[in-house]
Nucleic acid binder design. Structure first.
Lengths: 114, 114
DNA sequence: TTGTATGCATAGATAGCCTACATATAGAGA
DNA sequence: TCTCTATATGTAGGCTATCTATGCATACAA
């Protein structure tokens, strides 16, 4: 996977894995890997700063917890984050439609339906 | 459209619009706009350097032409570019599958089929 | 002669992701 | 005891593809 391809979609990914349950950073990375069928290996240096940014902007909230002697910062979606996730989903659909419309093999002309 | 989202997909877009006919830069920009349903407005400062890079790497070839008193540099796919386009298409499918697998609304667990 | 469309191009800024590194605990195995 | 791996969080700095802003030039309409 071209690493640049993730650009601009990271927020959506993070919000999405937190939609139904709170998770800590390390578990988020594993969830991304699992839910993408192994295709996404997002490094910690990407995830942790991104999570902090999302908290700073009010889309996530976090609490510290100690589990098995290890400290975890567990993130959860805020209401604002939930709304944002919906927006990210529409943006994703529009994005794939736009790129897909160009990439779709065909005559070279626009083809509204396939 | 979030401009960052294009990152890593520009080459695929350019190769794709040139698949069935050679075009010059300005026409490529219009083709992208049209085939994306108006969603893609790629600035000249993005397209022209990208085209030159693709020519430098052997995926495109170009010739100058004068039409109606205006000079155009017309680009066409090389064989290498044609092969590359196939690769870009698979990469796109894998990419959308990976992101889509995470973004898809659901239970929060991986769901192989919908 | 002014504006708009066409047409190519470069310099420099932007910004999001990645690499590399630092730190720490738990537990397995030698 | 020592080492290695997995777990867990975090920062600093680099990279680079794209964007912004700008420049130049021709054709044509108002």
């Amino acid at each position: 996977m071209n690493p640049d391809a993730l650009r601009g979609h990271m927020d959506a990914l993070l919000l999405s894995v937190l939609e139904h349950q709170p998770l800590h950073g390390y578990a988020i990375i594993e969830a991304l890997q699992e839910r993408s069928g192994g295709a996404l290996s997002v490094p910690t240096g990407t995830v942790y700063p991104a999570l902090r940014k999302l908290e700073r902007t009010g889309l996530l909230a976090s609490e510290w917890a100690t589990v098995g002697g290890r400290k975890r910062r567990t993130y959860r979606l805020t209401d604002s984050g939930r709304r944002q996730l919906e927006g990210e989903r529409s943006a994703w659909r529009e994005f794939t439609a736009a790129i897909g419309g160009v990439l779709r093999p065909g005559t070279g002309a626009a083809r509204p339906s396939e």
